[in-house]
């Protein structure tokens, strides 16, 4: 089991992931991975709390894998959120952080 917590930031809607330091990060690479049920529960609680604190919206725990040390979301939808539009690689995270990994 490997899961991370994702959401969109309230103020600008940008996709973010919860980091180990409790901060919402713009890059999935530094997201905190929950590897057992208790950790997943903690992520869910952290998500509810951040939602209630009006920091983020559309909070969701998603399945990921680790490939060569990189976090790789299982669903294409989440890979596209993590990278940016596959048809505009000059936009989104892929343009800011690293080459596209979505598709």
């Amino acid at each position: 089991m490997k899961k991370v917590l994702t959401a969109n930031r309230l103020t600008d809607g940008i996709a973010v992931w919860l980091g180990a330091n409790g901060q919402w990060l713009e890059n999935i690479e530094t997201a905190l991975i929950a590897r057992h049920q208790e950790a997943v529960d903690a992520l869910e609680e952290a998500g509810k709390s951040a939602f209630n604190d009006n920091l983020v919206v559309d909070v969701e725990v998603i399945d990921v894998d680790e490939v060569d040390g990189d976090i790789y979301p299982i669903r294409l939808r989440e890979r596209i959120r993590a990278a940016g539009p596959t048809i505009r690689t000059d936009l989104g995270k892929q343009a800011e952080f690293k080459p596209a990994t979505a598709a």
């Binding site: 969109n8 309230l10 809607g13 209630n52 009006n54 939808r77 959120r81």
Partner: peptide, 28 residues
Amino acid sequence: RRMSGEIDETAFKPLRLMNGVYLQLHAY
């Protein structure tokens, strides 16, 4: 009021939608 936390997402979402603002994968 939404940014200040005075109203929550449940109350705000229909208001933003009435003004054409959706939330999509990467942003609004």
